[in-house]
Nucleic acid binder design. Structure first.
Lengths: 105, 105
DNA sequence: CAGTATCCAACACGATACTG
DNA sequence: CAGTATCGTGTTGGATACTG
């Protein structure tokens, strides 16, 4: 049943889904939005989301190279399903932030 | 924003939330419902959910010892927020199961 | 029954350097 | 710009044995 956790599990993928929800984004833009993520980890996570079918990667054969990431229709649906979780977290931010292992970022 | 992932992240916690949703459950019952989980990992995950305030642990001072786990009000709310994710996973089970790193269990 | 204790393997993450 | 390669580390999860 927790297929969704396989897709958006880990430290960054859920963040990533929200960044991508705003429209096509370039690699560098994502890096700047997700403060603290390394290039390696970002690339890995994007590849996994792509492999799961929720993210689309569009490569433009230009110089300098440009790559744009966006949500697939499946990704858009996933995002809608993620919204209540986001709201729950926000509403209980204060209660949760004091708990061990939870970062209020 | 992804506070919720801190709470239900990992391989088992989301499964656990669904098992607990059905009412008070004993440790052994949970083990049998979650096929393949070790005692150590189950205990760890339950402790973490308890520390996050979504699970309540009730110890009955009997012989043999009995412990019942249930959802707190916060846990019930979390479960509601989890439902759309569950539905999304079910609806796309077939498409996702063929993807690398996703188990269709 | 409901856990702990111990040990180990796999993986995710992070830092840095390098490349088409 | 958008990555890959390499290395090192910490955390998670799994197997097994033992305890109040």
């Amino acid at each position: 049943m927790s297929i969704a956790i396989d897709v958006v599990g880990g430290k960054w993928k859920m963040h990533l889904m929200w960044v991508l929800a705003e429209g096509p984004v370039r690699f560098g833009q994502i890096r700047r939005k997700l403060d603290g993520v390394s290039e390696k980890v970002l690339a890995e996570n994007l590849r996994q989301l792509e492999a799961s079918g929720v993210v689309h990667r569009e490569l433009y054969a230009e110089v300098p190279p440009r790559v744009e990431y966006s949500l697939t229709p499946l990704g858009v649906e996933l995002n809608k399903a993620l919204a209540p979780l986001e709201i729950w977290g926000d509403q209980n931010r204060d209660a949760l932030a004091s708990r061990p292992g939870i970062s209020a970022s």
